[in-house]
């Protein structure tokens, strides 16, 4: 590393800060939080400020990945296609600086969006509900930021690994669809084939571990730990699992004391994996390719 990561990241942040698309995404996040708060304040009477956070977590699990993926999927490949990467690599920054500078810059952008949305929720919480569940709020913001960073990592990693915009988009959209729409088919389907029945509540450990590694589940499980009330993962349901299993975390489904990797807190590791592994693959491929 030649120490230009920070310079590249700053340029990235500045460049992305002028992107209209990004501002509309930030607007969407902030708008979502605002609408959520106002709607709950208007309709429900006996809701505490702490409980509102869980309502905000539900739409965030769907929108935040989309925002982060959009912010990141063009990061490296976009410059490769336009040719600005030649201008960049003609200067002292090398490929390592480019990948990690981009990752840092784009993650910072997503984090800034999350921070802005959380600040709005803080203000609305105080104004509309008269109190601020500060510890809950801080945990919520931190986990949401990590969640956003995980998807930014996935997107930047993908953008470094492929040679065309189309491929990058196909991969991130594909992964998002798998996580949110096809997950049960892909995990419970094989389970059905192996054991002749769909996963019961107390499913095999490998299956629970697989569930654990869905970053969206990891997020909702973590948030449920932090805020009052539960955030349920938004999923397409195919009825392959036993009905009682939906909405339960792997830790709850495990008979007896769950091992550490099935605990809800392990979600932090899961989210970090989704951040690190795609970047590692993307970096490896980008370092070896001809531009």
């Amino acid at each position: 590393m030649s120490g230009h990561i920070g310079t590249v990241a700053r340029k990235e942040f500045e460049d992305a800060g002028r992107s209209k698309l990004l501002w509309s995404l930030i607007g969407l996040l902030v708008g979502l939080v605002t609408v959520g708060y106002v709607a709950i304040w208007y309709t429900a009477d006996d809701v505490t400020a702490a409980e509102v956070l869980s309502f905000v977590g539900t739409p965030l699990q769907v929108i935040l990945p989309i925002a982060a993926l959009i912010a990141g999927y063009m990061a490296v490949v976009g410059e490769r296609r336009s040719g600005s990467i030649k201008l960049l690599l003609g200067l002292p920054p090398n490929r390592t600086d480019v990948v990690f500078g981009k990752l840092l810059g784009r993650t910072a952008v997503v984090t800034a969006a999350v921070a802005l949305a959380c600040l709005v929720s803080l203000v609305l919480s105080a104004v509309l509900f008269g109190s601020v569940p500060f510890v809950d709020w801080l945990g919520f913001a931190a986990v949401s930021a990590l969640f956003g960073a995980a998807f930014a990592g996935l997107a930047v990693g993908t953008s470094a690994a492929v040679s065309t915009r189309g491929k990058s988009m196909a991969i991130v959209v594909g992964i998002y669809m798998i996580l949110i729409a096809l997950w049960e088919l892909i995990t419970a389907g094989p389970y059905h084939l192996i054991y002749g029945e769909g996963p019961p509540v107390e499913a095999e450990t490998w299956y629970l571990l697989l569930e654990q590694f869905n970053p969206i589940f990891a997020y909702t499980n973590l948030i449920s730990q932090i805020v009052e009330g539960s955030v349920f993962p938004f999923q397409f349901q195919y009825g392959l699992q036993s009905a009682g299993a939906y909405g339960m975390t792997p830790a709850e489904r495990y008979p007896g004391d769950a091992p550490f990797y099935l605990q809800d807190e392990f979600g932090v590791v899961v989210l970090l994996c989704w951040l690190v592994v795609p970047v590692a693959i993307g970096y490896y491929r980008f370092n070896r390719t001809d531009l």
Partner: peptide, 22 residues
């Protein structure tokens, strides 16, 4: 030793693009 070269060289590449927003 590419990292030793780039600070000493000025490059005008072919088929490059600028950063449109900056």
């Amino acid at each position: 030793e590419a990292d030793a070269i780039s600070p000493r060289v000025g490059v005008l590449p072919e088929g490059f693009d600028i950063y449109p927003r900056l």
